[in-house]
Design a protein around this nucleic acid. Sequence first.
DNA 1: TTGTATGCGTTATCAT
DNA 2: ATGATAACGCATACAA
Lengths: 367, 367
Amino acid sequence: MDNKMTIQDIARIAGVSKATVSRVLNHNPSVNSLLRERVQKVVQEYGFVRSVTAIGLAGGHTRLIGVLAPPLTWPSVPEIMHGVAEFIERTDYEMVLYSIGFERNHSDVLDHILSMNMVAGLLAIFPGELSRHLTNRFQRGFPVVTIDDQTKPATLPWIGVDNVTSAYEATRHLIELGHLRIAHILGPQSYYCSVERYQGYCQALQDAGISVDPTLLLQGTFTPASGRECATMLFSRKRSDWPTAIFVANDQMAYAVLEVAEQQNIRVPEDIAIVGFDDNSFSAHIRPSLTTIRQPFSEMGQKALEVLITMIDQNHHLEKGAQKQSTQQEPIHSFENIQGASPRIRVPTRLIVRASSGAPRSLEIGL
Amino acid sequence: MDNKMTIQDIARIAGVSKATVSRVLNHNPSVNSLLRERVQKVVQEYGFVRSVTAIGLAGGHTRLIGVLAPPLTWPSVPEIMHGVAEFIERTDYEMVLYSIGFERNHSDVLDHILSMNMVAGLLAIFPGELSRHLTNRFQRGFPVVTIDDQTKPATLPWIGVDNVTSAYEATRHLIELGHLRIAHILGPQSYYCSVERYQGYCQALQDAGISVDPTLLLQGTFTPASGRECATMLFSRKRSDWPTAIFVANDQMAYAVLEVAEQQNIRVPEDIAIVGFDDNSFSAHIRPSLTTIRQPFSEMGQKALEVLITMIDQNHHLEKGAQKQSTQQEPIHSFENIQGASPRIRVPTRLIVRASSGAPRSLEIGL
DNA sequence: TTGTATGCGTTATCAT
DNA sequence: ATGATAACGCATACAA
């Protein structure tokens, strides 16, 4: 009953050789269907599962997927992970989670992870400044997929949203509400999505004939604390210098703005309208509820893993094929070489109008 | 520069044997300090990291820790994981995350995980009905630690809070506020913590000379939806049958109660006082802010991993010792055999008084 | 199609 | 204290 069986045991019981068992387990077509059944029966009966470590050592092909994630206490991250977990449950792969903090040097962590070549591929969530490093590994043939952050010369496989268009839509919403002085609290510049959201904001203003006022641009860092700072700074100006609306680059900072407004008895949306970005679970329940852009995080996680596993499998097949068909020394195993370009998948967002921009409560969506 | 080095390479460069390198890497004291330094220098210089798969195969001792967790979108879970990740970062271990959904048979998942003996130990978060199965594996010598759920005959190593006392304190708080009719929305009975919280509630009432009124007991399932149901049911009674306060078994359901109250223009805490349990991140920011019991989730995660890794290491040493010192066939490697009893660690909770039970806003804690 | 033999990178067991 | 060498469980090139 104990789990100490090896393919050797299975082979003995089924009356075949180790190799045959291995072939059956690997779905090698060149095995007699009679033998296959016999082996499978024994495997079933004893509930045999191969040692992952041995597979990894022998084949150099681990069935482990590394997930590099920011602290799970960050909003959005659990939702993404939920999608990832859901997808991976349906595959033969397992997930090794690396939740990186702030203290350590991130690229060191990355090197460490990859140097022990335990994982067959890597999903990087919000890689930020790590992108360059990841790009490097990817170009050397290691399967990598990122979620929601892209380096400038976009070369990494990527799943995300159209930040420019989404921000445009959010800003446009405020403009249609009649606002002319719309402030923007930006995300950190180390994330490219911050830049894109800023671009969308600018474009919406310009298309409406409103010029971008630099005094209405506040630099945040995506944290509630930075949101609080920006809001406090803004509200400490003389009233005539206030904007009538703020497009905040993420929900977390928007919550902080709402809090500061409440503390200073500033009415939302009457005195100032607020629009966020993300639609974290908070946003529908906070008072006033937050108008925001909904990102389908769970779907993004699923999609990312789907792409990654496809890459890994192709990778694996290519290696085998290359050795047989050519004398080339170095195995070609970059996803780019197959597809011609690394996949860049955009999932659609949606503007969710709630109370913070003036929707009557009865019309609220997403409760 | 590429990461294909082996201890063989390190050995060659350092001018020693594989064995010596291995010993250095394993902190074996019986190695000359001069050689040790030389090897360490080379390891440093090349950023060498051993192959986890090879270690696992050769040593029979994987440096992977399985974490069995409910969906990460559950509240509290990310916080626990945060603590886990923080702790594991400082060790030689990696974390394999199994986020279990609802559809699959859980014990099948568990069997699968363990049968490929990839993980050296298992941390089970909110195992619920899985406890029995886990107990079984634990008693057969596999290192297991659980967080915040215990089977009736408490035999698994366990990290959690004193639910009875905490619930007592929460209820006591309401009693001291002058409430006599205190309702309780219970958690699902499949979780033992639900039972304990109910016990604490009853005891507080009895100690205050208040008899438990069965009509004030509502059965929930920890989900917001069930909280909404219970609240709706309660508020649909004629006003004289209402309680003046509710102790809700977790924050999620309490949020729902607040929402229903708001929709029906029932004032909190004037018309009815609410106390929750958990202190999820929402609780300080919802309006009215929620009085609740704070569980130190992150610390629980850390503590759990500390215990688990201790178990694994002891386990390992025992196996080696047993082979040398006795002729016994089966290695004794149950933690219980060492400690005499499996560790049961209780971390302290704290009552956080906020607006939903009547605290003036200026006195609120935990913002 | 099937079996035999070798190697993967490390630990552990011998010698020395 | 150190070095040579045999496992560990599996995949795979090669032989049959």
